[in-house]
Design a protein around this nucleic acid. Structure first.
Lengths: 235, 235
DNA sequence: AGGTTTAGCGTCGTAGTGACGAGAACCCGT
DNA sequence: ACGGGTTCTCGTCACTACGACGCTAAACCT
């Protein structure tokens, strides 16, 4: 035991980011490739040390901006950001005792990420493929927890709109649900559900024609954050 | 900035406990009275430093056992324990940079807590009264988050049984819901709901007579952890 | 014995939802 | 121009879940 003078063991505290988006009809996660040991060359969640005088959410916002250029909040070019869980098993990092506060970020489809920051090449990967391959540290478990959190929150919150651009159609929102949940949904029942939930969608009055078929009405995210009644999976 | 040789600022990491129980027809929380500055004499959530080589959940289990004698897990004399959230604003502790991983513990009604451990006198307090008075650090926010987590999880999990003894009646379970949610529930509809949800309750075949009225059937918690469909508040 | 209290079952009306039909409004190929 | 394909949107029907509430069963109390 090497407690310091203050009577407590020192820890390193990091934030890791589970940044999810819906791209190319698939749920994708932002991963970096590690440049140094341990796990050199292995993919990992983006993250970094929390700085002195910096809050946990602020550190996650900084990491998100460094890796993607996105800022937290709601609105155009903004991503949803929330704390996910904290991982601190003693042996999760072979170098030292690290406690990692994982955060979940949800964003609309983006162009390629900027490979800036201290991280190596960052790229969006399909979640299933990312979980099939090796991930550094306990990041596979963190990613699974993040995906499950996102899936669960689609049920009882309006969080799916965080995967959409500021204005979107009902079918685009339905594709988000289908892709994140991995199950097909009836377009007519889905339309009835989301349009009849008060405060979920806000009509812009305009329509867009995208490919064949009747043009769809354009909506914005409404003020409601929690869905009553919820929108449950697997009847 | 005083980064150490390894290139990261050192943090103290603690676990704090939001231990809830239903006692005397009220939702109560375990609080200690601080013996030293800062906040000497002020009530606080029980907690302490995470030790070297000790996991976060293990540290929470240790704190829970020290303060209440309860052990985590399911079954007789066991409490439900899960991670709640992590609080790490730079100024939350005036002495040093502390990141606190809060945990939520739910337990059946217990005798008075053991005042052992390094903490001062520990006692169960009604949650509303605890929130009315001053609490140390950001513990009021942590307590609010813990109570809200418990209320939300009663909706879609069988967690209410964690507030009950291993064998209990339907009306006892209903009282748990009513007390935690703070709303009265129709006994007949509640009875229909919980007995018709497969896997929620397991009949022991026995009954107990408690006060006036027809004896009630005794149940155990079933294998189901998630409720389908959920049991929603405020229709 | 009769009143009170709680447990447990049943009934009725309504909201929510899955399955599905059908018209509306666009695209495209001929 | 016109018909076929595609998607959006509204509607119908049956079934389930649930809130409100009546009623009987089985204990306790005086």
């Amino acid at each position: 035991m090497s407690y310091d003078a203050a009577g407590y063991p020192p820890f390193a505290v990091t934030v890791d980011l589970v940044a999810l988006t819906v791209r190319d009809e698939a749920l994708q996660v932002l991963l970096v490739t590690r440049g140094e040991e341990p796990f050199a060359g292995v993919r990992a969640l983006p993250g970094g040390f929390v700085r002195e005088g910096e809050g946990l959410l602020a550190a996650a916002e900084r990491e998100l901006a460094e890796e993607t250029g996105l800022h937290a909040g709601t609105g155009a070019g903004r991503a949803h950001l929330e704390q996910l869980a904290t991982y601190g098993e003693p042996d999760r990092d072979p170098r030292m005792r690290v406690v990692s506060v994982a955060h979940l970020a949800l964003a609309p489809s983006l162009p390629e990420p900027r490979p800036g920051g201290d991280a190596a090449a960052a790229a969006w990967l399909v979640v299933d493929e990312a979980l099939a391959g090796p991930l550094a540290f306990d990041h596979a478990a963190i990613l699974r927890d993040g995906v499950e959190r996102a899936r669960a929150k689609l049920e009882y919150t309006s969080l799916a709109t965080a995967f959409c651009t500021p204005e979107f159609t009902v079918s685009r929102l339905r594709r988000v649900y289908e892709i994140v949940w991995g199950t097909p949904l009836d377009p007519r029942n889905f339309h009835r559900k989301v349009t009849s939930t008060p405060g979920f969608l806000e009509d812009t009055g305009r329509t867009v024609a995208d490919g064949p078929g009747r043009p769809a009405a354009l909506f914005r995210a409404g003020a409601t954050t929690t869905l009553h009644p919820p929108f449950l999976r697997e009847g």
